[in-house]
Amino acid sequence: MNGHLITISNLFKHFPMGKGHFTALKDISLNFDEGEFTGIVGPSGSGKTTLLNIIGSLDSPSEGSAVVMGQDIATLTLKAAARLRKRHLGFIFQTYNLLPVYNVFENVEFPLLLLRMSAYERKKAVMHALEWVGLGDKTGSRPKQLSGGECQRVAIARAIVKKPAIVLADEPTANLDAANSHHILKTMSTLNRELKTTFIFATHDDKVIQYLKRKITLEDGKVAKDEMTAGS
């Protein structure tokens, strides 16, 4: 361990393709620390999602290593990867991915059920998270009854309710209009400041970029630029 929250060294990712394979990530080396608010940007197909998936232990590197919170993703068992995600990682998806039959409260409660928290603790944490995202009054609604912006706020609440070390968000604003995008970005940067949660985005949305503290540009599977930005 070298003190970084995430250490990626000489990472390659190949996908089988026809007879050979396609290399989506080429020799990536990056570190991430606590409290970052970082965007991975780049054109479509540059490997943003692939990198995020590996950090999120949903996929594993082909070569090189990715160490997340002291755990080497390449050698994690499926069970250990699930445990890592359950305890320390939060996910936000472009398409929200709320569980349709659960109401807002239950969706946000889900990660806490997996952590076997008591009902009292769960309720407190869920209400707290929903207040952060400004949905304290919609606990009983079903995802179907919510707007896209509201759905994504529920998803944010679900990602942060267990106070994870890292939140990974793949194109969180891609399906939202400008006003909603700004709203959720403000919410996330507040959470980042107050909880010291590390946020890593994959995005090609300019609206996101102005909120970032750090911007990593991928091109063709390689890190083209890694720069600190003004942030908000």
């Binding site: 699930a82 359950k86 990682l89 990660p111 997996l114």
Partner: peptide, 8 residues
């Protein structure tokens, strides 16, 4: 999604 949230 359930797997991403940590279900085995």
């Amino acid at each position: 999604t359930q797997m991403a949230l940590g279900m085995t």
